[in-house]
Simulated assay, not measured.
Amino acid sequence: MKSKTEFKHEALLDASDIQDLLKSISKGLGKGKLEFSDDKGTLALEPQGLLYLKVSASEEDDRQQVDIKIRWEKHPKKLSKELPKIGS
């Protein structure tokens, strides 16, 4: 399959199917590898180190929504573990 750098998928699913999908994402995060694929190609991601998580929920009229965003740096910056010297 052709490799791509973006994966998007939209569908109407029942809560059980979405729960299975979220479990697969959770399992992939635990293993350090997420692989998304469809008939257009495959996108493999390797989450590592500290991950940024943003969860938001909203309700407007008859529409309710939950958004989950997970992000990480492919090559995280190395930070010093030493305290700076500060004089007073």
Rank of each mutant, 00 (worst) to 15 (best):
K54W: 02
I25E: 03
K4V: 14
P47W: 09
S56R: 09
L45V: 03
D17Y: 01
L51T: 01
E60T: 07
Y52G: 10
S58T: 06
E35P: 00
Q65R: 14
F7L: 03
E60H: 07
L43V: 08
G87L: 07
L50A: 09
K4M: 10
D14E: 12
K74W: 06
S58N: 06
K27Q: 12
K31R: 14
K85T: 10
P47H: 02
K27C: 08
K33L: 07
Q48K: 15
L34R: 01
S56H: 04
K78Y: 11
Y52V: 13
A15D: 15
L50G: 07
F36W: 12
D67V: 14
K31S: 10
H9N: 12
L50H: 08
Q48T: 08
R71I: 11
S88H: 08
V66T: 01
V55E: 01
K81M: 13
A44L: 07
K33I: 08
K81Q: 10
Y52C: 03
E73R: 10
L83Q: 04
E73G: 03
K40T: 13
Q19P: 05
L12Q: 02
A11H: 02
I70R: 03
W72Q: 00
E35M: 01
S16I: 11
D67A: 09
E82H: 05
I68H: 13
L21A: 05
G49H: 00
K40F: 06
Q65C: 04
Y52E: 12
V66W: 00
K77L: 14
L43Q: 05
S88C: 02
H75W: 10
T5Y: 06
V66K: 00
Q48C: 03
L21I: 15
S56A: 06
G30R: 07
G32W: 05
V66Y: 04
S26E: 06
P47C: 01
Q65V: 13
